[in-house]
Nucleic acid binder design. Structure first.
Lengths: 210, 210
DNA sequence: GCATTCTTAAAACGGACGTTTGACTGAATG
DNA sequence: CATTCAGTCAAACGTCCGTTTTAAGAATGC
């Protein structure tokens, strides 16, 4: 447990945002959970909105950086031939899944938070996510174009969004999905989740053109 | 003659819930938009939570009924041979996409609402969705098992959830997606959306076993 | 026509919200 | 030693929240 007030606020805010959403989580609930004074939120961050942005940035920036690193490593290994679709998908999925599962194990269940960021209403979160994701989207659409040159870029863009939605929904609705499955599946094994995601998305990306 | 106050509340609540989410939408915003008295919400419905449930039920019940009708029609046309995956997927997707696009055309943009219901935090919405979806999930997993007998039921369940997430995310993050695509795709054509969804999901369902 | 039920209206309830204030701390600076 | 200054704290600010109350109107049954 960190002793710095700013980090304690970020940690508690992350947990409570994941559990209850952004607008349903009050600053008082956060400061109670973090055991800090209420006014320290507006001292270290300027407002609740800025706190939301800080929570998102702290998680998304390292993940997206890792995604681009893995993607570049793949592209360098295939300088002249189409890179395998499955490897590109792993570069896209693994950094997120590992980050989520790691937090889960550490008692910080941020799974629904990661699942919800694309869907959160309000222009504040949307513009934040847009600026954080545009580089990643461009890089992966380009990579899929190398892997599947016969698929038009517009269709590849559709399919990348579907690949995002698969993961987003799996994390955000994890308790609901596990309940509906009546014990058939569990969403807590990094490699199993990655296998299922990659197998489905690879099939979808290669699917017959509509 | 039943009063139209109740329906006006439902219509306005639906629009504002879709725009701003459930907890960020106040009853005063709803009654102002509907041009009715504030107290009429607690008169016709008992609470805000009950209003949320009523809004969800009014939309989801007809859609899920239509899904099961279309699925049964397909299964009756293939009594002895595996039904085509694409037709099952159309039975799953078309009722939702048509409902959403129809509302969109009528000036009632409920797209983000439909996309967000699986992801909304809080046990109230979750239990509501669970009871509304369990019959549909069971019926479609069974149908996919007929269409793809070589795929284990647990994997089919994973893949049905991925199919849900694709659509969910497409609707909930539609403005974000259209922005990130920089004009490459638009999410307003029923048949185009259905083609893209079905093509990707069919490829994914048929994908190599992980 | 009167009585009863259903529906709307304005106003207020207590509480929770995000934010601001002003006093106070304790270590660092010169 | 006096001063500064980032940080913490309790308290209060005005606003908005979901809900309730009280009363007046509209509809319905006899």
């Amino acid at each position: 447990m960190p002793s710095d007030t700013k980090d304690r606020i970020l940690d508690s805010a992350e947990i409570l945002f994941a559990q209850n959403g952004f607008s349903a989580t009050s600053l008082r609930a956060i400061t109670d959970h973090a055991d800090v004074n209420l006014a320290s939120v507006n001292y270290h961050f300027q407002s609740k909105d800025a706190l939301v942005q800080a929570v998102l940035m702290r998680r998304l920036n390292p993940v997206n950086q890792r995604r681009l690193e893995m993607l570049n490593a793949i592209l360098q290994r295939f300088p002249a031939s189409p890179p395998p679709v499955e490897e590109i998908l792993e570069a896209f999925y693994r950094p997120v899944v590992e980050e989520v599962m790691k937090s889960q194990r550490e008692g910080r269940p941020i799974m629904p938070l990661i699942g919800r960021i694309f869907i959160e209403p309000g222009e504040l979160v949307a513009s934040q996510v847009r600026s954080l994701m545009s580089q990643v989207v461009t890089a992966f659409v380009d990579a899929f174009h190398l892997a599947l040159p016969q698929v038009p870029p517009a269709v590849l863009f559709w399919r990348l969004q579907f690949a995002v939605g698969m993961m987003s929904h799996t994390f955000a609705a994890a308790p609901l999905i596990e309940g509906l499955s009546r014990g058939r599946i569990r969403i807590n094994d990094t490699e199993e989740v990655l296998r299922q995601l990659i197998a489905f998305a690879a099939g979808g990306l290669r699917g017959a053109m509509p």
